[in-house]
Design a protein around this nucleic acid. Structure first.
Lengths: 249, 249
DNA sequence: AATTTTTCCGCAAAAACTTGCATAATTACG
DNA sequence: CGTAATTATGCAAGTTTTTGCGGAAAAATT
């Protein structure tokens, strides 16, 4: 059996039952546990699953709540937020959507920054409200508890009449050909409106989100101005974006 | 069973019934109590639950942070919130503004209540987002950092087109002749619009607020339907309200 | 105060993982 | 086609993680 077949089989099983065990795969695929471990490691490096002691679990485990997502890859998110924070300039009008990475950025806005921020994210707004130099404007609408953001027509209407300097998107998936994509249609709509309403587009993406894609397109790759991520511009994961002229930070 | 599965199961159970016991989990998941204890500790370290003697509870229920302990008359506010919570009925469309008393009420919405809540308060919206039966709609606008509420034209416009069943106001001052009054002009405007948009008006007021008045009038005394407070209807502080036909709870 | 329940601590066994290495399979190329 | 290079696999030894247990400590209950 070819390695690729095994990988496909593992991912298939993972989709069906959310988890796989090293021992179980070793038996069904008739290879040693060591080989399975190496398979899982490779797939984990591609962000296709999450390796745990005893096997692996699906990264896109659906019943994840906001709180649970917040602790996932937390250290990496903080590093990205720190890198992004130094790129902000006073006087800007900024659009920010939700996401746990954006929340870390909101917490790390430079103390002396003066800016106006429009956001549809409750946690981001809460974090920014403690900042002395930032005027925060919350987009109204129905609250999605899973993502802690508001959606709906009111927010879209407000964005339609706005010309902001910078949009900071927390994306679920960033792909060099497909662009920034989302899994929820209502969220995707608001994000699209945010992108439309601003000059520049910055995205913070942890490694696991690079090269991934979801059903609803938020922005095409060429819309992206800055991509803040962990791998450098030479890294195969980031290089395709650099080739498009996107600033890799 | 993988450790992560157990964790997911624990969190799932916690989300549904907001508490779990060590013994119960040990039985359902078929591992020793020590293992459960270690699981709970790990999850507690990630901030995903709160460990208590005998098991764990949802963090949503116990946000007794250092800040909240210092809230003025906190215990009294909690008692008022408990009294008000039992008066809520399923199917209602409710308007809620901010304030620490309203926040305590939001945390104590009956678990089986089904309702739609419009609010301009960030903490109230955050608390309600954890409630399975409540649809939360946030009023947009500029964020006042001191009160953690939004103000502005967008919220006023939305309220103008609304007919709600109940308005729950957290008032700064309640006077039997002057009515409910506020100290901030912008907040007063939103509150006034909320009162206008609903059939009934309920207010939770700690003793210290009774008989007080502030510059901006939000609602006349006769608008008030229910006053939830500590003194009984015979008490000289509450009697003038009872005389107006207001329900004292 | 006594008793029961729950938690904490250290330990030991089992399971799972890592690493280095030898061998087998596959691919590359003259 | 044959041989070298590369890659994949399995094995063994050592390490880490996980788990359950006994007993002491702490907390709740009576």
């Amino acid at each position: 059996m070819l390695k690729e077949e095994r990988h496909a089989s593992i991912l298939g099983q993972l989709r069906q039952q959310q988890k796989v065990t090293t021992l179980g795969l070793s038996r069904t695929l008739d290879v040693s546990e060591d080989t399975i471990r190496r398979d899982l490691q490779e797939l984990a490096e591609l962000g296709l699953l999450k390796k745990v002691h005893g096997g692996a679990i699906s990264t896109a485990l659906s019943p994840y709540t906001w709180k649970e997502r917040e602790v996932y890859a937390h250290e990496e998110k903080i590093r990205l937020a720190e890198k992004a924070a130094v790129r902000l300039r006073s006087g800007q009008v900024i659009l920010m959507d939700g996401g746990t990475t954006n929340l870390e950025l909101a917490r790390r806005f430079p103390q002396d920054l003066k800016a106006t921020v429009f956001t549809n994210s409750l946690p981001v707004a809460t974090a920014l409200s403690e900042h002395p130099g930032v005027e925060t404007i919350l987009l109204g609408g129905r609250l999605l508890s899973s993502a802690q953001v508001t959606v709906g027509k009111d927010g879209l209407d407000l964005l339609a009449g706005l010309r902001a300097d910078l949009c900071i998107l927390g994306a679920r998936a960033v792909h060099p050909q497909i662009g920034i994509t989302e899994i929820d249609w209502e969220e995707a709509q608001i994000k699209r409106a945010m992108v439309q309403a601003s000059q520049e587009l910055m995205t913070l993406a942890i490694t696991a989100k690079l090269g991934m894609a979801q059903p609803y397109i938020v922005a095409e790759p060429r819309k992206l101005t800055t991509l803040v991520t962990t791998p450098g511009r030479r890294d195969p994961l980031a290089a395709p974006f650099a080739a498009l002229g996107i600033d890799i930070g």
